[in-house]
Computed example of a mutant assay.
Amino acid sequence: MSNGATFLVQTIFDLFIMAVILRLWMQLARVDYFNPFSQFIVKITSPVLNPLRRVFPTLGRFDIAAAFLATALAALKIFVIVQMQVGAFPYSVLNLFMASIQSVLIITLQLMFWILIIRAILSWFSQGRNPIEFVFAQLTEPMLAPIRRIIPPIGGLDLSVLVLIILVQFVRISIMGAG
């Protein structure tokens, strides 16, 4: 199969997995539910998540249905891509499960990276009036606050975002190397 088809399949799966991960992350961070960006994520994930919630309970703020859906979609993505490239699936179910967990972790870290980059760029222009920036701030502040306690802003420059980006990339590269 062509590289273009593989790219298209991977991109479509990854975008929806990112939406599911965002939904889970927004619930954990208690992001403003009525924000237009939050509503978009809820509306595109609800048709698949709502039936799964009848099977998988929620533990506190952790949405097991969303975690299951992200992992299942990653497994399906891997299966489809291997089928397209090889024509048969040479891996065990355990290998597929482990690869799907790794894929979800890598996608989560990529999502964190891009949210931090976009948040930093938006902070230069929008002065906090953008609804997406507000959601991104709610998502990332719990991770940035501890870094700010260790490395306070220097001369008005907040280095916590840079430190978190470096940590996220380090973990992502480490996970990718382990696979």
Rank of each mutant, 00 (worst) to 15 (best):
93 V>R: 03
72 A>P: 00
88 A>Y: 12
82 V>Y: 02
92 S>T: 15
93 V>A: 14
78 I>A: 12
90 P>C: 05
86 V>Q: 05
85 Q>L: 09
81 I>T: 14
82 V>F: 00
70 A>T: 02
66 A>Q: 04
69 L>H: 07
82 V>G: 06
71 T>P: 00
80 V>Y: 08
61 R>A: 12
83 Q>G: 07
87 G>A: 04
64 I>W: 10
86 V>C: 00
80 V>C: 05
72 A>I: 14
66 A>K: 07
90 P>E: 01
81 I>N: 08
92 S>M: 05
74 A>L: 09
71 T>S: 15
78 I>P: 08
63 D>E: 15
67 A>C: 11
79 F>I: 03
76 L>P: 01
91 Y>V: 10
94 L>N: 11
90 P>A: 07
77 K>S: 14
81 I>Y: 01
64 I>Q: 07
84 M>C: 03
75 A>E: 10
94 L>V: 14
91 Y>D: 01
60 G>D: 14
66 A>M: 07
68 F>S: 06
65 A>D: 09
72 A>C: 03
61 R>H: 13
78 I>S: 13
65 A>K: 14
73 L>Y: 11
89 F>R: 00
65 A>P: 13
89 F>W: 02
61 R>Y: 10
83 Q>T: 08
71 T>Y: 07
92 S>C: 06
69 L>K: 02
95 N>K: 01
79 F>Q: 04
69 L>M: 15
75 A>R: 11
92 S>D: 09
72 A>F: 15
82 V>M: 01
85 Q>Y: 00
73 L>G: 08
76 L>E: 07
89 F>V: 04
73 L>H: 09
74 A>T: 10
77 K>T: 04
78 I>C: 04
68 F>D: 13
69 L>Y: 06
90 P>R: 06
91 Y>W: 06
81 I>S: 06
87 G>M: 03
79 F>G: 06
92 S>F: 02
91 Y>E: 05
79 F>R: 03
60 G>Y: 00
70 A>K: 02
73 L>C: 06
61 R>V: 10
95 N>Y: 11
64 I>N: 03
75 A>S: 13
66 A>R: 05
62 F>V: 15
83 Q>E: 05
69 L>Q: 08
79 F>K: 05
78 I>D: 15
70 A>M: 04
83 Q>V: 01
90 P>W: 00
67 A>H: 10
64 I>A: 12
70 A>I: 05
63 D>T: 12
73 L>T: 05
79 F>D: 04
89 F>L: 12
71 T>Q: 11
89 F>C: 02
90 P>N: 06
74 A>I: 08
66 A>V: 10
63 D>Y: 10
91 Y>F: 14
64 I>P: 02
90 P>S: 03
75 A>P: 02
63 D>C: 09
91 Y>Q: 08
65 A>E: 11
73 L>S: 03
93 V>M: 12
74 A>W: 08
65 A>W: 13
67 A>D: 06
